[in-house]
Design a protein around this nucleic acid. Structure first.
Length: 303
DNA sequence: ACTGTACCCTGTAGGC
DNA sequence: TGCCTACAGGGTACAG
């Protein structure tokens, strides 16, 4: 393996899955993809979570990427052909960007385990998709079918857009007995929130993850004070995380400026047994399981 | 319509 | 050192 400083000069390591992380990945990929043309696409296995599309490489090669956008936790590369390359990182999907070709064998990362797809661009840039658990996937969809596609058609509002309002939340939550945690994690309601940011938004808003979603609405479907308080906290936690370049829970790489920093600012996530950071609260963070996933919260100040 | 559970797959951390 | 279990940011398919 080459010394880290040499490797880092040509490598950018970009991480992972909820909305802020996907947005950071998108921003990192834009310079390497937008306006660039696929030269060669290497596919190292037939499937990720789903089978890769038939004629995957041929449908990409020679095509220009007009635009790379994000919708919820999805990345969408719009190609000149009218195809859209839809990508999801699952739990462990990562992209590595290299600005120019390197000599064969010159880098220990070459042919690294779980490198499943490599995009070679005509300008010499390389983008490698690595995903140990293979919960991520890539699909090719015709632009005209995007809106009706089952993976995209049912997605809820973008939380950073004006579509997320207390009124919207109340309307969707009215009469629902599901826990507030499960409700906010549902991609059909809000697109892009995951386990970390749901926990953190509820903590900031002082709302218990175990209460019913219906408590966001009055009997007539108007937003309650809680719904009104929750919306800006959802936005704030996502924006704070994006500013911090996302959350990295593991040290896959050396610190090189591309690792997220928001994990250092969690109020509750992964902090079981620790003190609630809220001034004057004095509670202890607890971990419970909801819908098969960990929820972290402060039972003292989240009601 | 709503739960809750199992499952997809690999890696890691911690107990013994 | 190893072996075992629990757990991990995602989503879906069931059964009840």
């Amino acid at each position: 393996m080459l010394p880290a400083p040499i490797r880092q000069r040509h490598d950018e390591c970009l991480l992972m899955p909820e909305l802020p992380e996907v947005e950071i990945v998108r921003r990192g990929l834009v310079p390497a993809l937008e306006g660039k043309v696929f030269d060669r696409v290497d596919q190292h296995r037939p499937d990720l979570r789903f089978p890769l599309p038939t004629r995957f490489a041929p449908r990409l090669e020679g095509q220009k990427v007009e635009r790379l956008e994000r919708r919820g936790k999805y990345l969408l590369a719009h190609l000149a052909s009218g195809d859209v390359l839809l990508m999801h990182l699952g739990m462990t999907g990562r992209f590595r960007v290299r600005k120019r070709a390197k000599q064969a064998g010159a880098n220990a990362a070459e042919g690294a385990k779980h490198d499943h797809v490599v995009f070679h661009m005509q300008d010499g840039g390389h983008i490698t998709y690595n995903d140990p658990r293979r919960f991520g996937f890539m699909l090719l969809i015709d632009r005209s079918e995007l809106a009706q596609h089952p993976l995209l058609g049912n997605l809820g509002v973008e939380p950073l857009s004006e579509a997320l309002t207390p009124e919207y939340l109340a309307a969707r939550a009215r009469g629902k007995k599901v826990s507030l945690k499960s409700f906010l994690s549902d991609q059909r309601i809000i697109a892009g929130l995951g386990n970390i940011y749901v926990c953190e938004a509820l903590y900031r808003a002082g709302l218990s993850p175990t209460r019913a979603a219906s408590t966001l609405a009055t009997a007539t479907g108007e937003p309650t004070e809680d719904a009104t308080a929750l919306v800006p906290e959802i936005r704030a936690v996502l924006q704070d995380a994006i500013r911090a370049k996302g959350s990295s829970l593991r040290d896959y790489r050396q610190a090189n400026g591309e690792r997220g920093g928001f994990q250092n600012r969690f109020g509750v996530y992964n902090r079981t047994g620790k003190r609630c950071p809220r001034q004057g609260c004095g509670g202890k963070i607890e971990r419970i399981v909801q819908a098969g996933r960990s929820t972290f919260y402060c039972p003292r100040c989240q009601n």
